[in-house]
Amino acid sequence: MNIKPSAAIRKNYNEISALCKTTKEPVFLTKNGEGDLVVMDIATFSRRESMLRLREQLVAVEEDRLTGKKGFSIGEVDEMMKKAIKEAADEQRG
């Protein structure tokens, strides 16, 4: 975990930016000894957001399964994918 005083962002922006990019970890900034902000590079932020969205989707699917909502079998999904691919290919041919 990287912890820096908030003044470090003004004085050492490039250093903190490089630290975020090389470690792929957030930097925690403090103000008057207390946690204040978290800084991270865009790629790490985007990756974390994608993971959170995927987890939300997985939780929703699991909740549906636990409440008895009907899903699709592997065979049904396979057929839907084949149909979608064929339709997309047909549209491209025009």
Rank of each mutant, 00 (worst) to 15 (best):
A88S: 06
M1F: 14
T30L: 02
A88W: 01
A8G: 03
I9A: 09
F72T: 04
F72N: 09
R55W: 06
E25K: 14
D36G: 03
M81G: 02
V39M: 13
R10E: 12
E25R: 14
A43L: 04
M80P: 00
Q57K: 13
N32I: 10
E56N: 12
K86V: 07
T23E: 08
K82Q: 11
A18I: 07
K24N: 13
K83M: 08
V38W: 02
K86A: 11
G33I: 11
L52P: 01
I42H: 05
C20S: 04
G68D: 09
L52S: 07
K82D: 07
E15Q: 12
T23V: 05
A43E: 14
F45S: 00
K70V: 15
N2Y: 07
E87G: 06
I42Y: 04
Q92R: 12
G94H: 06
N2K: 11
G35W: 13
V61G: 01
T30D: 01
K69I: 12
G35S: 12
F45M: 02
I74V: 13
N14I: 11
N2I: 11
K31I: 08
V27Q: 02
Q92C: 09
L58E: 13
E76N: 09
L29D: 01
T30C: 01
T23L: 09
S73W: 03
K70F: 14
R65V: 13
T23K: 07
K83S: 03
K83D: 12
G33H: 03
